[in-house]
Design a protein around this nucleic acid. Sequence first.
DNA 1: CTACAATATGAATGTGCGGTCATATGAATG
DNA 2: CATTCATATGACCGCACATTCATATTGTAG
Lengths: 204, 204
Amino acid sequence: MPKDTFFNLPEEKRQRIIEAAIDEFATHPFQQARVTAIADQAGIAKGSFYQYFADKKDLYTYLMGLMFQKKISYLNQDLMENRGKYPFFQLLREVFISGIRFAKENPRLVPIGMMLVNDKQLYHEIFGHYEDASIEFFRKMLEEAKDQGEIDPVIDPKLAATMLIGMLYSLTDFLIEDGKLDLDDMAIIDQMLYFAENGLKKKD
Amino acid sequence: MPKDTFFNLPEEKRQRIIEAAIDEFATHPFQQARVTAIADQAGIAKGSFYQYFADKKDLYTYLMGLMFQKKISYLNQDLMENRGKYPFFQLLREVFISGIRFAKENPRLVPIGMMLVNDKQLYHEIFGHYEDASIEFFRKMLEEAKDQGEIDPVIDPKLAATMLIGMLYSLTDFLIEDGKLDLDDMAIIDQMLYFAENGLKKKD
DNA sequence: CTACAATATGAATGTGCGGTCATATGAATG
DNA sequence: CATTCATATGACCGCACATTCATATTGTAG
């Protein structure tokens, strides 16, 4: 957690620091991200940085928290709270839509998330030692849908969850990185769902 | 390219160096990988390292080349050379099989590849500035299959290629990382194909 | 043996960066 | 004003590491 001094800062200055940090962490993995660069960019002295944060990781962890909250806020609250009441593929659509929308509206946050996911060690230091939360999330959804007879019984939920996450990650990355696709966002979502639905749905 | 002195080395010593490098690069991203660790592990003096390689990147680039060759060697030569003659889903099965087999037999190489893919900057320095080769490879296969009427005309080849790669990457990573899946390799491949086939195939 | 070239070695060099610290500035209080 | 407390600052320290270099060792040819 940042120190009190950080939260006592005028809103504007705090934002400058956060923005500078996002810039730096979006372009450099944690270890290579430079405190000096963040301080310079934010227009504060390096020493001041350590008035606000215990160290580099302190800021990083705080940022990850903000990001996580923001990501969550893109999910339709009603759908998520009453998961059981909605058909699986509608939930899946909602998750895809919010994922893409988040990525489009916060392009700088995407690479930060990617880098964290790829640094297993750091990931565990920050989020603790449990299975990747997003895989678990999808796995549970699939498990329930399977019980409801919505998806093909031969599908292994954990494997399918891994594949869905993989699709979503690599697509998000792709869209942000070079994003040359002659489709608008909704067409992309439709195709992903079409693909996933035909791949997973219970056959008659 | 390594210097002549490296290739003049007795086979056994050269192997030791390569193995040491693989160990180091499998556990540390390029920037954090230490020349000292490689030299120590290989049992050579640090100075000797620079008799063989211009610098750290020289060795790394060389390693990536070896890895690429090795990966290619897992593909069924006949199938690849006569791509046009085989049905798309058979080719896809072959690519999946060789990918998983490569990963299972060379587990230390997988994280190295993952880290490289995730370091866009380094990736481009090493492989040049063209589109991700594996996406292109899948995209072409899909394009051809679409012309043959094997896959659903609504599918966008580039998007589908991105999704397939994503599935394959994340699955490979998953298998190597913690790999707790109650399925054997063939069952995994079958499910991936089942998923992909139903998702992509032309509907009657 | 000798002389020359190729290779091996690890101490020394240089650099970049995270984190510390003594000091300065300024706001608030009385 | 004078005192105190919170915040700001950038020079400085220590360390880790890639790379260099002067020197030693080994191999080879005549």
